[in-house]
Simulated scan of single mutants.
Amino acid sequence: MSNLAAPDVSFVVLSYNYGRYLSDCLASIVSQHTAAAFEVIVVDDASTDDSERVARSFAEPRVQFVRHAVNQGHIATVTDGLRLARGTFVARIDCDDRYRPNYLSEVLAVFRHYPDVGLVYGDVALIDDTGMVTAERVDRAHGGRDFKGNELTRLLEENFICAPTVIARRESWRQTLPVPAGLAFHDWYFTVMMARRYDFYYINQVLADYRVHAANLHTTIARNKTEETSIFRVLNMVYGEREAMPGLEERKQRVRRQVHGAQYLTLANKYFGFGMDSDAQRCDLAAVRYRPAYLVQPAVMRRLLATVVGRKPYELAKSVVKSAPALTK
């Protein structure tokens, strides 16, 4: 394949024991409504299910399958895919997600119109294990409009870019390598590092479906707390270096306490949802130290109350309040 002309786009598909979803993902790529030339690189991290059979069942010359002999983890898998990619633009997707048919035509139109943009993305719908849509839209950051500009400071506060819609110039991806060993994730790392160099463009359309199920990586790393340590590793990296883009360093430093407070607040909410009350309390208190105004937020007050008095008294008090008759004047 390396002797052929370089394609316009490379799709890097990350595969590990999701054979039951892989066909859906690959079908969504090869059926794109576009005249652009593209290749599909499936990098399988030594799956023990039928992932290889599913990938090889696609009688499609644009699809190539690369398999690790032994499991190497998500960082090695995505790195291998990015290094094999030959396209001018590269999209990476986990094989449990899928694209909408107009994905490629929409994102390439933006790159043609805005040559200064390094990364393009859009909104997603949420789907369940069976592929049924459970939420039509998820973006809350752009007010229902397209957006072009730098998003570093917002990204440092929250990972609001949904990975399956991301496509970037090949050099943008490669400038982020190597991914630091031991990070629990790579999607937020990539977008943060690219936002330090480039403007992004958000398309206010649903361009992909993001599958939510019990085995999601982000659920696992939140529960085992490796997400938390990785988030602050990335923040320490970013705040330990100066930004080259004009004005970006000053904006980044101005929101430093806000960034750390927001990340702790998000972690507290996740831990509370998982019943990890001591970790929820720890992160809520850390968030308040960075941003004291959080203390008067009802959600923070409720979580702190629950983690201090215990879940049972908290739930009992909540039910009493709900069932009490409304006070009248």
Score class of each variant (00 low, 15 high):
residue 71 N to Y: 07
residue 215 A to Y: 10
residue 322 K to V: 07
residue 112 R to Q: 14
residue 84 L to P: 03
residue 129 D to N: 14
residue 302 R to C: 14
residue 52 E to V: 14
residue 68 H to P: 06
residue 118 G to E: 13
residue 118 G to W: 09
residue 321 V to L: 15
residue 92 R to W: 10
residue 183 L to S: 08
residue 20 R to F: 07
residue 237 M to L: 14
residue 8 D to C: 05
residue 275 G to I: 03
residue 273 G to E: 03
residue 28 S to D: 12
residue 178 P to Y: 08
residue 40 V to I: 10
residue 283 C to Y: 04
residue 206 V to T: 03
residue 131 G to C: 03
residue 193 M to H: 02
residue 255 V to N: 04
residue 63 V to D: 05
residue 323 S to T: 10
residue 288 V to G: 02
residue 91 A to L: 06
residue 103 Y to K: 09
residue 22 L to E: 11
residue 296 V to C: 13
residue 238 V to S: 05
residue 18 Y to R: 11
residue 259 V to A: 00
residue 188 W to E: 00
residue 211 R to F: 10
residue 262 A to H: 02
residue 11 F to A: 02
residue 84 L to G: 03
residue 77 T to I: 05
residue 57 S to E: 06
residue 261 G to V: 02
residue 302 R to G: 06
residue 208 A to I: 04
residue 59 A to D: 15
residue 107 V to F: 07
residue 225 K to W: 13
residue 93 I to A: 03
residue 297 Q to E: 15
residue 193 M to R: 10
residue 207 L to Q: 04
residue 221 I to S: 05
residue 169 R to I: 09
residue 305 L to V: 10
residue 68 H to L: 11
residue 56 R to C: 13
residue 309 V to F: 01
residue 288 V to W: 02
residue 169 R to Y: 09
residue 15 S to W: 05
residue 202 Y to W: 01
residue 160 F to M: 00
residue 188 W to C: 00
residue 123 D to W: 00
residue 279 D to L: 15
residue 124 V to Q: 03
residue 113 H to S: 15
residue 98 R to K: 12
residue 127 I to T: 09
residue 62 R to L: 13
residue 307 T to L: 13
residue 241 E to N: 13
residue 66 V to I: 15
residue 155 L to G: 00
residue 49 D to P: 09
residue 312 K to M: 11
residue 296 V to Y: 13
residue 84 L to N: 09
residue 167 I to A: 01
residue 10 S to L: 03
residue 244 A to T: 15
residue 54 V to L: 08
residue 208 A to H: 04
residue 322 K to D: 13
residue 325 P to W: 12
residue 79 T to E: 05
residue 208 A to R: 01
residue 186 H to F: 13
residue 297 Q to I: 12
residue 203 I to K: 02
residue 152 L to R: 01
residue 63 V to Q: 07
residue 198 Y to V: 01
residue 298 P to E: 06
residue 59 A to S: 09
residue 218 H to Y: 12
residue 80 D to S: 14
residue 295 L to R: 11
residue 107 V to W: 04
residue 186 H to G: 06
residue 289 R to C: 12
residue 203 I to T: 04
residue 295 L to M: 15
residue 47 S to Q: 12
residue 213 H to P: 01
residue 198 Y to F: 13
residue 230 S to H: 02
residue 177 L to M: 07
residue 121 Y to F: 07
residue 91 A to I: 04
residue 320 V to I: 15
residue 2 S to W: 14
residue 106 E to V: 12
residue 25 C to A: 11
residue 302 R to Y: 08
residue 108 L to K: 04
residue 285 L to H: 01
residue 188 W to D: 00
residue 46 A to N: 12
residue 78 V to D: 02
residue 166 V to A: 05
residue 181 A to E: 14
residue 86 R to D: 08
residue 297 Q to T: 14
residue 35 A to P: 03
residue 148 K to I: 08
residue 277 D to A: 11
residue 287 A to I: 01
residue 319 S to L: 10
residue 40 V to P: 04
residue 288 V to C: 06
residue 63 V to A: 05
residue 62 R to P: 07
residue 128 D to M: 02
